[in-house]
């Protein structure tokens, strides 16, 4: 059986080629290269799915590693991009997501042996639900973020009557970007809610209280509230265009802060992921 390192390297190569091809296709305005980038990203996704199905990570000496988490996140981001590509026939978010997934894979390679061991006190059946729901939500939110960012740039140019030079002309129409943002946000929030609720129940089972004041917990609830405002206004108040795009960028940035800064620097129950 192929080793996790070899499989990771293979996927890293595929994602690297997908990113290069996608970026070259967008900047040189070549449809062939863009299509190649999409196909390579799909191939990388299929390869990673196979890795997951065959349970490569179980062969890691110390259980699920930090690298494996990083790869799992990349898998959900690719899944989000592929869903948008298939449903809306729009490959741009997937092409934008490929370099991010490449980075996640590159970061994972030296961490495949860095074991992430859940402390015995935190062992719970909620673990898979909590991580699965949050990661799938984050994958969709990443696509919403790229669509929102692109919308803000293109809409700004149209609104201010600035020229749309070169490859910007090949970008999707702003209405479509808004639609992508809406669909991914509406799908992402319930999953995020599930992740947070499962975390709260888990915390009550372990610590006897749902809210313990842990920085990660506080941040997650704050994000959930802001995300909730975005979700509610998208769904009920018909928010469209610039406003939800800005809120999506804010929510994604806070999630990024929560993962990168709180998990790695602050004193939190989630510090176990440092390995």
């Amino acid at each position: 059986m192929i080793s996790p390192e070899a499989a990771t390297t293979l996927n890293l190569a595929l994602l690297g080629a997908a990113s290069l091809s996608g970026v070259a296709g967008i900047s040189a305005r070549r449809t062939f290269l863009r299509n190649l980038g999409v196909r390579l990203a799909v191939l990388a996704f299929a390869g990673q799915t196979l890795m997951l199905l065959l349970g490569f990570h179980k062969t890691l000496p110390n259980g699920l590693s930090l690298g494996a988490y990083s790869q799992l996140l990349a898998w959900f981001v690719l899944l989000g991009g592929i869903v948008v590509w298939r449903r809306l026939r729009q490959p741009t978010p997937l092409l934008f997501a490929s370099p991010l997934c490449f980075i996640l894979f590159a970061v994972s390679l030296p961490c495949l042996d860095t074991a992430v061991t859940l402390p015995a006190s935190l062992q719970s059946s909620f673990y898979a639900l909590h991580v699965g729901a949050l990661f799938s939500s984050l994958g969709l939110l990443t696509i919403a973020f790229f669509a929102g960012l692109l919308f803000l740039h293109l809409e700004g140019r149209i609104k201010s009557k600035r020229r749309m030079p070169g490859f910007w002309q090949d970008m999707p129409a702003i209405s479509l970007l808004d639609k992508i943002n809406a669909l991914t946000v509406l799908a992402s929030f319930p999953l995020y809610t599930l992740g947070v609720i499962s975390g709260l129940i888990w915390a009550r089972n372990v610590f006897g209280a749902s809210v313990t004041g842990d920085p990660k917990e506080v941040m997650s609830i704050a994000i959930w509230l802001i995300f909730g405002v975005l979700f509610h206004n998208r769904l009920v108040k018909n928010w469209k265009g610039r406003k939800p795009a800005r809120w999506t960028v804010l929510v994604f940035s806070l999630c990024l802060f929560s993962i990168v800064v709180i998990n790695t620097i602050m004193n939190t129950y989630h510090a176990f992921v440092r390995g």
Binding site: L154, I158, M164, P172, A173, I174, S175, L176
Partner: peptide
Amino acid sequence: ELAKRIFGD
């Protein structure tokens, strides 16, 4: 062209 950039299809 501008209409297409806003509405697409």
